[in-house]
Design a protein around this nucleic acid. Structure first.
Lengths: 84, 84
DNA sequence: TCAATGATTAGACAAATATCTAAATAAAAT
DNA sequence: ATTTTATTTAGATATTTGTCTAATCATTGA
């Protein structure tokens, strides 16, 4: 839960998640979208993976990142306790 | 949105929100629940208020904090874009 | 085999964060 | 009036965080 909130507490990482809503993408393709350096984006992707918000598969020299929606259920569950 | 995620990115603040689920409470009553100093809790309450997750009313020398659930809808809305 | 490409790791640094103690403010009680 | 109680503000400090450049690793292509 800590890693989840931590991962979401950054606009760049949230933008990456929104980008992945449109389908999986390589680290490089994701990085192109932002003004930050590739290592910076790589670090953001690492934090997203630590939170289990994304998964990564190596395909040749590329690394493909995919959104993992299941962990969001945990968050939704936490939020729903406040709705009532 | 930034202030919201920032406010949620701390276990103490999340515990404060859960505490307020049981009803409004004074700053002192909230602080008693934790090992941190009163100023520290006051600061956490300030961040929660900045995110509009709580409201505060002064009652005599006390300050009563109340959970504000409406802002959570914004968060739920953001999350739901990923559910489908 | 060697060079190029995609990505991560390592290390540095400035900015933000969580905490504390001490001081200030404000209301209540003596 | 003075003291006590509730809370916040101010200032300090150690830790965490986001970013960068340089270096490394791994795969592909010449």
């Amino acid at each position: 839960m800590n890693a989840l909130f931590k991962a979401l507490n950054d606009p760049t990482r949230r933008a990456i998640l929104e980008r992945l809503r449109g389908g999986p993408a390589t680290a490089g393709a994701i990085a192109e979208q932002f003004q930050f350096s590739a290592p910076t984006i790589s670090h953001h992707l690492d934090l997203l993976r630590q939170a289990d918000l994304v998964t990564s598969q190596k395909q040749g020299q590329f690394v493909v990142y995919t959104l993992n929606m299941t962990v969001l259920d945990e968050l939704l569950g936490w939020l729903y306790q406040f709705k009532s």
